[in-house]
């Protein structure tokens, strides 16, 4: 299930600014361990962010996204009490959804 994400969503001048920090190794599959064995790739490949039920950002990633990925974006609208949720899925089938309420 992975570790909880940190999601900050703040209303500013009619927009909602969202910052997401995801805990994930984002292992490329190119690196080798001290014994010289290749460490298998382990990375998030799909991300969807929603404002209530509406998709406000979707992303498809490869292993070149940094470890513990951070993304920032903003969308029009958002009122206190609305939900902002983020869902990710990785190449090993793990996934996680977290959500925050706009304040």
């Amino acid at each position: 299930m992975g570790s909880p994400m940190k999601i900050r969503a703040a209303i500013k001048d009619g927009r909602t600014e969202v910052k997401v920090l995801i805990a994930h190794p984002m292992e490329t599959g190119f690196r080798k361990d001290p014994e010289g064995k290749t460490i298998p790739g382990h990375y998030i490949n799909e991300v969807v962010a929603k404002h209530n039920d509406k998709v406000v950002l979707s992303a498809v990633w490869g292993p070149a996204v940094s470890q513990n990925p951070f993304i920032q974006f903003q969308f029009v609208g958002g009122t206190p009490g609305d939900s902002v949720s983020v869902t990710w899925k990785d190449n090993q089938g793990d996934s996680r959804t977290d959500q925050v309420a706009l304040s």
């Binding site: 406000v56 992303a59 990633w61 490869g62 070149a64 996204v65 920032q72 974006f73």
Partner: peptide
Amino acid sequence: NPFAAAFAIPDQTDAMISARVK
């Protein structure tokens, strides 16, 4: 592998994205 990430921007969202890459 040069292709790092793709983002889809719906109408409601500003065409601006920040991320961190290797």
